[in-house]
């Protein structure tokens, strides 16, 4: 009965996604066509003549009426075809699939750092409330949520690459050169991207754990045994799971966005750079495809997190969230 309801709910949510994604597709199509400048002249560079530009436009199908282009685009989408890049002369899916793993590695690495460090710092702050540990972590996490990602990236490079020479400043490691090469390339971009979520996790963990710890203040005080105190902490941490999940959902979107800036600073060959390059080259098909892909990813992650809620906290009524 319960599993059945969960499945039904999932199905409904997935169906709900279709109009949202359709709208994303419409919006991104309209925005890209409003961008001044056209791909043909951008591709051909300064030396091209008007005739050459026009020939290329014709080849790219850009001389077709916009409505016609739009209908073609939708038709392709229905067939799950996100198009063919006229700059790379390759299917957009290939371009995405080449870079997507790189972005995912970076994002997941950052997510792991931020969860581990953030939650740990949050727990320490909560348990040692009022001590200098608490103050240090609280101030660091306040600074952490406020720091501009791109500035932090530059500062980390300045210090750890230029000054100390500990980590490479750019590019992705080569796994064939061994794990250490790969990992050392991952550290600076990973830390850069992790900072904001790390700080957010730390704050949310601290506050939701305190809620429980303060309620159980007297019990905590009475619980002389280490084990008893540990049980209360565990209980408090469990209470923190739901808000951490909520924040996780919100962070995925901002991390994908933050990845754009991080990838730009560190020459990381991921989705962010693909999109920024595509915007500069006016490769509309790639812009459309990648943005749609990221939007899909975003809504799916949020759906997954909603579903996780149910597992962590079965008390939440399905009907209410569905609305």
């Amino acid at each position: 009965m319960k599993v059945n309801r969960l499945l039904k709910y999932t199905a409904k949510r997935i169906v709900d996604l279709i109009p949202t994604l359709f709208l994303v597709a419409v919006i991104i199509f309209m925005i890209t066509r409003m961008i001044p400048g056209d791909p043909a002249s951008t591709m051909l560079g300064p030396q091209a003549s008007v005739k050459e530009i026009n020939n290329l436009r014709e080849q790219m199908g850009l001389n077709e009426p916009k409505l016609h282009q739009f209908i073609e685009y939708l038709k392709d989408l229905v067939h799950l075809n996100v198009g063919y890049s006229y700059v790379y002369k390759r299917p957009v899916v290939d371009l995405i699939m080449e870079r997507f793993p790189n972005t995912i590695i970076l994002t997941l690495f950052a997510l792991v750092i931020s969860l581990v460090v953030g939650v740990t710092a949050g727990i320490i702050s909560a348990v040692k409330k009022g001590t200098w540990w608490d103050y240090v972590f609280t101030i660091l996490s306040l600074v952490g949520v406020s720091v501009p990602v791109f500035w932090l990236g530059i500062m980390l490079v300045l210090f750890f690459s230029v000054e100390l020479g500990w980590f490479p400043s750019t590019g992705m490691g080569d796994i064939s050169l061994g794990f250490s090469d790969y990992f050392s390339h991952l550290i600076l971009p990973g830390v850069t991207l992790a900072t904001i979520p790390m700080a957010t996790f730390s704050r949310i963990t601290r506050s939701s754990m305190l809620e429980v710890l303060e309620q159980n203040y007297i019990k905590t005080a009475k619980a002389k045994g280490l084990q008893a105190r540990w049980i209360i902490c565990k209980h408090a941490l469990k209470n923190a799971m739901t808000p951490i999940l909520t924040v996780l959902g919100m962070q995925v979107s901002s991390m994908l966005g933050g990845a754009v800036l991080t990838e730009t600073i560190y020459s990381w060959p991921g989705m962010g750079r693909l999109i920024v390059d595509a915007i500069n080259k006016r490769d509309f098909v790639v812009v459309q495809g990648t943005v749609l892909f990221l939007a899909l990813l975003f809504v799916l992650v949020n759906l997954a997190i909603d579903l996780l809620y149910k597992v962590v906290n079965p008390k939440i009524s399905l009907g209410k969230v569905a609305k």
Binding site: L140, L156, G165, W166, F167, S180, F183, H185, I187
Partner: peptide, 13 residues
């Protein structure tokens, strides 16, 4: 930056 450093040590390439 020591905080960040402490969070994730690593070796240079």
């Amino acid at each position: 930056l020591i905080f960040v450093l402490a969070a994730c040590g690593g070796k240079s390439s």
